[in-house]
Design a protein around this nucleic acid. Sequence first.
DNA 1: GGTAGGATGGGCT
DNA 2: GCCCATCCTACCC
Length: 191
Amino acid sequence: MHFGSILPRSFYARPTVKVARDLLGKVLVHGTAAGRIVETEAYLGLGDRAAHSARGLTGRTRVIFGPPGHAYVYLIYGMYECLNLVAEPKGAAGCVLLRALEPLAGLDQMRARRPAARSLEALANGPGKLTLAMGITRTHNGTDVTRGGLVVREPVHAEPFRIEITTRIGIRESTELELRFALAGNRFVSR
DNA sequence: GGTAGGATGGGCT
DNA sequence: GCCCATCCTACCC
């Protein structure tokens, strides 16, 4: 299975909301595993208390303030890891959480990494499930996603889709902001 | 179909 | 010491 070209850094060096919307339909590739991005969330630099970067530059948020097109991976609830892609020009904060994938390639590998999943839909329909299925860990924190083993590519054939916009899932702060983007009606979306 | 409870460890106050 | 951008199991309907 092959895909299109790797998204260039200029794709990520834009407002976070635009990057979050435009990542829908693109293909996340790690080694032989690949999946279509069907759900994202934007985390902003200013006025977004739910974002890790809201408290400023720290050891953990260093990557978010760094150059765009890099992975920000962090541990959540002591057990799971979440993958974000850094947006905005260097020095500005902003990143996009990848919440769900439609598995496209390397399905056997994904199933082996997700023994708890009882269906194809359940392989990567949540941020923690996505990183498990794709084999992404904190060792990828800070890596460049415009080159190397973990990249985002254009799809081979882009089918038209409608985007559903809602509030973000699972957060305790800034719950009124509508910054979640998903393919409307897609069965691989987390909810 | 639905949800309550617990696992688990790093970041920050 | 207290969260926390989660997931799974057990249990109930």
